[in-house]
Amino acid sequence: MEIIDSLKEFLTVDNLLEILESYKSFGPLPGFLLVVLEAFLPFLPLIVIVMANAAAFGLWMGFLISWSGAVVGAAIVFLLVSKLKKYKWVQKQLQKESVRKTLSWIERHGFGPIFFMLCFPFTPSFLINVVAGLSKVTFYQFFLALTAGKMVMIFTISYIGYDIVSFIKAPIKTAIALTIMLVLWYIGKKVELRLQLSGEK
């Protein structure tokens, strides 16, 4: 836990900008790989990484780097998890009533809830990817929801990160941005709770 906490403290926008500057000879690759890595290590601060990419590479390039990295990372997690379903120890977990009900809810609604949950930066995207991979949702359905949902979420964060200096200097902009982030956090928590309650029902 101490290592994770130390890593979180180290990964600030300023520190990431220094890292990206140090490895600028590799172009957008470091920024892309950081976002891909976050799909496997959800404790990494995705918002900070996306902001740093936007600040380092510009709004549109930073957005494309982060979006493509997020999509690739989530798709790999989905495919890996879907391959694990054939193993007995995974099948045993899938037989649990709460798990079966959650998977059933995801399977019935398909694209909609996956897209909606992935739109918000504070929903547990790693968990969503894993649950979708364990369900009978097709990769095509998941990929459509993933690309669309991450597009909304990543662009919102990239926009703030790209113009972060003006957000710091302008109190009104900062207040609006914080309000939006709090609203997104609240909605994300409500969606997460709804998913849990639906699974219990």
Rank of each mutant, 00 (worst) to 15 (best):
I157Y: 03
F122R: 08
N129I: 01
G112A: 06
T123V: 11
L193N: 10
F78W: 15
I4R: 05
T156H: 06
K173V: 04
L84A: 08
K8M: 11
L182P: 09
G188F: 13
F143V: 08
L193K: 05
G149T: 06
A39E: 11
S68H: 14
L184R: 04
L41C: 08
K96C: 03
M1R: 09
W105E: 11
L33I: 03
I49L: 13
L197Q: 13
I76V: 14
L34D: 07
I176C: 04
F32R: 08
L33H: 06
S104G: 15
I180H: 03
S125M: 04
F40E: 03
E21V: 00
K136T: 14
K189N: 14
P124F: 05
I106H: 12
C119G: 08
A39I: 02
D5Q: 14
Y159W: 12
I19K: 05
I114E: 03
T138Y: 09
S135V: 06
M117C: 03
W60K: 07
P171H: 04
L144M: 14
Q141D: 06
A70I: 01
A54L: 00
W60A: 10
E2F: 15
F167K: 07
D163Q: 08
L144I: 13
S158R: 04
P45K: 07
G199M: 08
Q196S: 09
F126G: 01
L11N: 15
Q196P: 01
L127M: 02
E38H: 06
V99A: 12
P121I: 00
A74V: 11
F111S: 05
E38C: 03
L127Y: 07
D14K: 14
L46T: 12
K88G: 07
Y140C: 04
A52D: 11
F111C: 07
I172F: 13
F78M: 08
I49M: 11
K136Q: 13
L59F: 08
K201P: 02
A148R: 01
L184Q: 14
F126M: 05
K86V: 12
T102S: 14
Y159G: 02
V48K: 05
S158Y: 00
F40H: 07
L195Q: 05
G31N: 04
K24Q: 08
I157W: 02
A175F: 12
L178N: 05
F57N: 01
K92P: 03
